[in-house]
Every structure is written in C-alpha cells, then in structure tokens.
C-alpha cells in the first residue's frame, strides 16, 4: 500500500486554522477567569462565539480526517513513540470535542442560553447548580489537559523537524 507523505491540503489548512483558534480561545479563557479588567466582558463574548465555531470546526475536521488518507509515521520511529503519537492525536480529538461541548452545556446549566450572531441556539439542559459544577470543572480541567497536550505536540513536532528531520514535521507543513 502506497501511503502519502503529507496530509492532504484540506487537513493542513484546518490544522493550522484550528491551531490559531484554539490557542486564542485558551489564552482568552485562562485570562478572563482571573482578570477583573474592563475588557473581560468583550473577551467573554468573543470566547463564546469562537467556541461555537470551534465546535463546528472539529466536526468538519473529523469528517475530513475519516475521508482522507493520512501519512504513516516512518519505520524509523520506535514503536512506543508511534503509540504515543496515536494517543496524542486521539486525545486532541477528544479534548477538542469536550472543550466546546462542556462550555456550551455549562452555559445552559447556568441558565444562560447561547446565541450565535443573534440566532438563538437550542438549550439542551435545565438550569442546575450541580450540572453547572460538572461542566464548569470539565471545561477548566480539559483546558489544562489541552495545554499540556499542545506542549507535548509542539515539542514532538520540533524534535522531528529539527533533530530527526524524518519528514514527519513536513507532512503537516507543505507538499
């Protein structure tokens, strides 16, 4: 079987756009829960809109991923690292669903229905303090896990790109 050496253009575009979106959302989120600054509200409003967009983005990404042929890691990569890479990728998909869904549901449980550009979005949960607690904690802890995963991912990408130079880094950058 002849696997491609790079990810298809659609996946590379979605990867880099989502990287920018997710990093911005994480920085905004981690800042706005601490800050008493006057811009906190604008950031919160932006975070909610972009969070809904991030949910749509991960759905689209999963569809593209399932329909695309993705490159295999080179045989020079040890088995344990191959497994780690698979787990990291799986973890990203899980967290990129958990983040927007928990954010959406915690707003529902707090009695604050969401809307996107003036269009009201469906309320899936009743107002409930314990459910708010569940999804609020999920949102906060998943964010920290995601930061951790991103750090591991960047370090691994740099290791392949700068030290191993085995084409793994290039597979997400260019043809």
């Amino acid at each position: 079987m002849n696997k491609p050496h790079t990810y298809p253009l659609s996946m590379r575009v979605v990867h880099w756009l989502m990287a920018a979106l997710v990093l911005s959302l994480l920085f905004a989120g981690l800042t706005m829960v601490k800050s008493l600054g006057p811009w906190q509200q604008q950031l919160l409003a932006w975070h909610k809109v972009m969070g809904v967009i991030a949910l749509l983005a991960i759905v689209i990404r999963l569809i593209i991923r399932l329909r695309s042929e993705t490159p295999k890691l080179p045989d020079t990569v040890p088995k344990m690292q191959q497994l780690a890479a698979k787990l990291t990728q799986f973890g990203f998909y899980v967290l990129l669903f958990v983040m927007p869904l928990s954010g959406y549901l915690m707003q529902n449980a707090a009695g604050r229905p969401l809307s996107l550009f003036g269009l009201p979005l469906p309320t899936l949960l009743n107002t409930d303090l314990a459910l708010y607690g569940l999804f609020r904690e999920m949102h906060g802890w998943a964010a920290l896990l995601l930061v951790l995963l991103i750090v591991v991912h960047i370090l691994a990408a740099l290791y392949h790109g700068l030290i191993q130079r085995d084409g793994v880094f290039r597979s997400m950058v260019r043809k």
Partner: peptide
C-alpha cells in the same frame, strides 16, 4: 466589570461543592 468576574468565581466554587 469586576463584580461579574468575582461572582463567576464564587459560582464555580459553590457549584463544584454541590
């Protein structure tokens, strides 16, 4: 603006406890 941020933190803490 600060009231909103502080209320949200209080809300998070008591929701977690409940």
């Amino acid at each position: 603006r600060a009231r909103a941020a502080a209320y949200a933190e209080s809300h998070r803490r008591r929701a977690r406890e409940v």
